[in-house]
């Protein structure tokens, strides 16, 4: 069973600043949604609230059908200490926490799953390398492999393709599509609107408040309309101030 997310009049703060205001939205179970909007629009703050790291100042946020360990979250700047003496396989195996917890022994199946995840992300040759020796793209692949192991119903990704090369980006996109096909709910913060159009059936445009939410084409049309209107206003302003036309 997958997870759905329900927000009712949700208001969130980031420090003293209101980051999200009066958000009413429902992310359907099994959907693949891109969360778009300008910098400071509250996208990352919203993901933080969904995983429970941030309490609402007003309103409600509910994750339905949420079982033990059913959320996987990849923040834009993960807090991983890359100087810690652990190898890539060890980092990926952290995803086993959701099924084995603190004390249960890892079984042969768990080890096979870790090896399979490393294989899927093209990291099998790097399994025994310390995480400090990975490039940015390899490290991001390792974090995706950890999510594979988590087997979460709800997957939240914040700018997952930032600072990775094109080849890695394609590989990670394939994994996201696979999660969608498996019926998991995936929500991803993105800035690249071409990628949003190509990959995501649903989109939510957030600019502190919800500006649009629905089929990606319709949302991007709204974005384009607002951008055109702004461009027209700017153009007229330039004409007035220079006395042109």
């Amino acid at each position: 069973m997958s997870c759905s997310i329900l927000c009712r009049q949700l208001t969130l703060r980031y420090g003293q600043h209101v980051a999200v205001e009066d958000l009413d939205a429902e992310i359907e179970s099994g959907s693949l949604t891109a969360l778009i909007g300008p910098n400071g629009a509250g996208k990352s703050t919203l993901l933080d609230a969904i995983v429970g790291n941030r309490a609402p100042v007003r309103g409600q946020i509910a994750v339905r059908n949420q079982g033990h360990g059913s959320i996987a979250y990849l923040p834009q700047h993960p807090q991983v200490d890359r100087s810690f003496p652990i190898d890539v396989a060890g980092l990926v195996a952290m995803g086993l926490w959701t099924r084995r917890g603190a004390w249960r022994r890892w079984r042969r199946q768990d080890r096979e799953d870790v090896n399979h995840a490393l294989e899927t992300l093209g990291l099998v040759d790097h399994a025994r390398r310390p995480i400090s020796a990975l490039s940015g793209g390899e490290f991001q692949r390792a974090l995706f492999a950890r999510i594979l192991i988590q087997d979460a119903r709800l997957i939240l990704l914040d700018e997952p393709f930032a600072a990775v090369d094109e080849q890695t980006s394609y590989a990670l996109q394939e994994i996201i599509l696979r999660w969608h096909r498996e019926g998991r709910t995936v929500m991803t913060v993105l800035h690249d609107l071409d990628l949003v159009r190509a990959l995501f059936p649903e989109a939510m445009w957030l600019d502190r408040r919800k500006m649009a939410h629905g089929r990606t084409e319709a949302v991007l049309e709204d974005v384009q309309a607002v951008q055109d209107a702004r461009e027209n206003r700017r153009h007229k302003h330039v004409q007035v101030t220079t006395g042109a036309g």
């Binding site: 360990g69 959320i71 200490d81 810690f84 917890g101």
Partner: peptide, 22 residues
């Protein structure tokens, strides 16, 4: 012995542990 795994995971990635275990 009891804390080795949670302490290791929490040292590597406190953000991850906050989400999966709290």
């Amino acid at each position: 012995l009891l804390l080795h795994r949670p302490l290791t995971f929490e040292s590597v990635d406190p953000g991850f542990m906050r989400v999966v275990s709290g």
